[in-house]
Amino acid sequence: MPNQFSLAYLTVLGCSPPEMTYMAAKAGYDFVSLRPIYMGLPGEPNYALAENKQLMRETKSAMSETGVKLLDIELARIYEGVNPKRYLPAMEAAAELGGRHVLSSIWTDDRNFGIECFAEICDLAKPFGLTIELEYVPIASVYNLKGAMDVLHTANRENAGLMIDIHHFHRSGDKVEDLEDVPREWFRYLHLCNASAEIPSSKEEMTRVLREERLYLNEEGIDVASIINRIPQVPYSIELPNVKRANELGYEEFARQCLQTAKQYLDKHPRKKYVSHDAVGQDQLRFHSTR
C-alpha cells in the first residue's frame, strides 16, 4: 500500500483551515490535520469551525475543490477541571467534514480524573464515528508509553487508540521493543518528524525544540525507521515545526520540503517484517498492514 500523508497544524502554525487545505493539495498531501479547538495560547488565532460558519464553509469548499480530506482534529486536552463536553462542537464539525480522529493528551496529575475524562471524551465522540487518539507528551502528565497504555487499558473504550509522535517517543526514553506489546488496533495514524538524537536536559529546551526546531526525516537524528517498523502501516501526519526554515522558505515550500524529505527517507528505509515473541514464548512472524 502507498504511504499517505497529512499536513499537521503545528507544521504551518497559524494558517487557517482553508489555507492549510489548499497548501496541502499543492504540496502533494492526502490529508490535513486541523486545530478547530481553540486553546487560547498567546498569539494563536481562533479557528473554531463550529463557531465560525463562514470559515466552515470556506474549509468545506477547499476540501471539495482539492480532494484533500480531514484526517484528525486537535486538541481535546485534559486538564484539571475541564468539562469534556466543551469538545462536542468541534467533534460535530470534524464529523461534518468527514474527519476520522480526535487527538487528546492528558495534563493533570490526577490519574482518576484524567482517565474518567478520557473515557467520557471517547463516549462523546462515538456517535460521530470518531476515534479518540491518546498522544503522550514528555512535558505533560502522561508522558510515556507505559502511562498511555495504563489510560487506554483502564478506560477500555473501543474507539480509543494510541497516537505515537516520533519526537515524543524518543524524548520519553521508550524502547521500540515495547511497541510490540501495544494492541495493533490501537494504531490509526502517527506524527512523523525528526529531531536531534541528544535529549535536552531541561524542560524549557525540550519544549522549545518540540515547538520550534524539529528536523527533516533525512537529517541525522532519531532512528525513525526503527520506530515505524514496529507500527502497522498507517497514515503519517507530518508534524514538523521549524520556525527558522518556515520563515526562510515560506509555509507552502516548507510543507513541500517536509513531505519530499519524508518520502525520500521512507524510500531509503522500506518497511520490514519483524519477529516478535508471543505470550506463550513462541517466535511469531508479524507483518505490518494498513488498518
Results as ranks from 00 to 15, higher is better:
residue 1 M to F: 12
residue 1 M to H: 13
residue 1 M to T: 11
residue 3 N to C: 08
residue 3 N to W: 14
residue 7 L to D: 08
residue 11 T to G: 10
residue 11 T to K: 12
residue 13 L to R: 15
residue 21 T to I: 13
residue 22 Y to S: 09
residue 25 A to D: 03
residue 27 A to W: 11
residue 27 A to T: 06
residue 30 D to V: 01
residue 31 F to Q: 04
residue 37 I to A: 09
residue 41 L to Y: 06
residue 42 P to W: 07
residue 47 Y to T: 04
residue 48 A to G: 09
residue 49 L to T: 05
residue 53 K to N: 11
residue 55 L to I: 03
residue 63 M to T: 04
residue 64 S to Y: 10
residue 65 E to Q: 15
residue 69 K to Q: 15
residue 70 L to P: 09
residue 73 I to R: 10
residue 74 E to A: 14
residue 75 L to V: 15
residue 76 A to N: 14
residue 80 E to D: 15
residue 85 K to S: 15
residue 87 Y to E: 10
residue 88 L to C: 06
residue 96 E to V: 09
residue 97 L to T: 07
residue 101 H to N: 14
residue 103 L to P: 06
residue 110 D to N: 15
residue 117 C to R: 14
residue 118 F to K: 10
residue 118 F to T: 06
residue 121 I to D: 06
residue 123 D to C: 02
residue 124 L to S: 03
residue 128 F to Q: 10
residue 128 F to I: 01
residue 129 G to P: 02
residue 130 L to C: 03
residue 130 L to W: 05
residue 139 I to D: 00
residue 142 V to I: 12
residue 147 G to W: 04
residue 150 D to P: 01
residue 150 D to N: 10
residue 151 V to E: 04
residue 152 L to W: 03
residue 155 A to H: 01
residue 156 N to E: 05
residue 158 E to P: 01
residue 160 A to Y: 05
residue 168 H to A: 07
residue 173 G to P: 03
residue 173 G to C: 01
residue 177 E to P: 01
residue 183 P to Q: 15
residue 185 E to V: 13
residue 187 F to D: 13
residue 188 R to L: 14
residue 188 R to Y: 14
residue 192 L to M: 14
residue 197 A to I: 09
residue 199 I to H: 06
residue 210 L to R: 11
residue 212 E to Y: 12
residue 212 E to M: 14
residue 213 E to R: 14
residue 214 R to C: 11
residue 214 R to V: 13
residue 215 L to P: 05
residue 216 Y to S: 12
residue 216 Y to E: 11
residue 219 E to F: 08
residue 227 I to V: 15
residue 228 I to Y: 15
residue 230 R to E: 13
residue 232 P to G: 06
residue 237 S to W: 02
residue 240 L to G: 00
residue 241 P to L: 09
residue 244 K to A: 07
residue 246 A to F: 00
residue 252 E to G: 01
residue 254 F to Q: 02
residue 255 A to R: 03
residue 258 C to V: 01
residue 259 L to G: 05
residue 262 A to Y: 02
residue 263 K to V: 07
residue 264 Q to E: 12
residue 269 H to P: 03
residue 269 H to L: 04
residue 272 K to C: 06
residue 272 K to T: 11
residue 278 D to H: 07
residue 280 V to R: 08
residue 280 V to L: 07
residue 285 L to A: 02
residue 286 R to T: 13
residue 290 T to I: 10
